[in-house]
């Protein structure tokens, strides 16, 4: 069984985690095009290489992100969401500042 390193709880069996899908900033509901919204909701990039994914350590309900190589299944690093989401999104216009 694979191990995954949780930024809060350390190395644990992958069975302690819930997969949360690929990291994908949500486009602005009001300004994005129909096409872009559909891409966001229904299409997956299916990248061969490094992707960023959401993972949740189930027993502690702790969400974090992992950079994983989909070709080798190697997890390069894991980190907390505040690295990407640096401030509170107060207005719907605001987007996360960083994109991978």
């Amino acid at each position: 069984m694979k191990l995954l390193s949780c930024p809060l709880n350390g190395l644990r069996n992958i069975s302690e985690f819930t997969y949360g899908g690929e990291y994908h900033p949500t486009p602005d509901h009001q300004t994005t095009s129909s096409r872009d919204w559909a891409e966001h909701v229904f299409f997956h990039d299916n990248t061969a290489g490094i992707v960023i994914e959401w993972w949740c350590h189930t027993p502690s309900s702790f969400w974090f992100l992992a950079e994983r190589n989909t070709l080798t299944d190697e997890v390069v690093r894991t980190f907390t969401p505040d690295e990407l989401y640096t401030k509170s999104i107060i207005q719907h216009e605001t987007k996360p500042e960083t994109t991978p």
Binding site: W54, C56, P81, I89
Partner: peptide, 9 residues
């Protein structure tokens, strides 16, 4: 929890 990890409310 996942949504608020993004919204940071």
């Amino acid at each position: 929890l996942k949504w608020n990890a993004q919204w940071q409310l």
